[in-house]
């Protein structure tokens, strides 16, 4: 999907911009999903992912993890680990990911993969980093000014009230 997001932005179909974050300067890092990057399409799709992220949060507000792209560490949410019942081991596995995220100093981690999202969200709470973990579609819509009040489940308090579309529909 990332390559299509990038394509639609380049073609001008999605008129995203990062003005909402110009003064807020909220920093974002991104998790490269193993399945999509290392195991399937390689670094070119990781570049597309970064193009999309930078387009919506601002280039100066993006901080990459180290290592990254095809060389990125798995978060521990894949391969069925989330449902395997080995919770302690899964959290131990994810410690390296949590430290990688904290080292970026980013306020948010973007996770486009559902398994990554669930695992990193848990890592954030378990290891006390408490950085919110968001889907990419949330930020694309935020930057387009079309993200309603009920579509902000994973945004932190700092972004709950920013650029709200139809605020009167809040539930």
């Amino acid at each position: 999907m990332y390559e299509y997001y990038a394509k639609w932005i380049r073609e001008g179909k999605l008129k995203v911009n990062s003005d909402w974050n110009k003064d807020l300067k909220i920093k974002f890092t991104v998790q490269d999903p193993c399945q999509i990057v290392r195991k399937s399409y390689g670094d070119p799709i990781a570049e597309d992912l970064r193009f999309v992220v930078k387009s919506v949060v601002g280039e100066e507000n993006f901080v990459d993890m180290q290592p990254n792209k095809s060389n990125n560490y798995c978060c521990g949410g894949g391969g069925g680990f989330l449902q395997s019942g080995f919770k302690d081991q899964r959290l131990a596995y994810g410690k390296i990911k949590d430290e990688q995220i904290k080292a970026t100093g980013a306020d948010y981690c973007i996770a486009g993969c559902h398994n990554c999202h669930a695992q990193i969200h848990e890592l954030s709470e378990h290891y006390g980093g408490n950085y919110p973990v968001v889907h990419l579609w949330t930020l694309i819509c935020l930057s387009l000014g079309i993200l309603g009040p009920n579509e902000r489940e994973y945004l932190g308090d700092d972004l709950k009230e920013v650029n709200v579309f139809h605020p009167e529909t809040a539930m």
């Binding site: 193993c34 290392r38 894949g78 080995f86 596995y93």
Partner: peptide, 16 residues
């Protein structure tokens, strides 16, 4: 061993 259920088959090993 339970370890095969703790490996996510992320393929970083084969990559390096």
């Amino acid at each position: 061993s339970d370890w095969p259920w703790m490996c996510t088959m992320c393929q970083r090993c084969i990559y390096v």
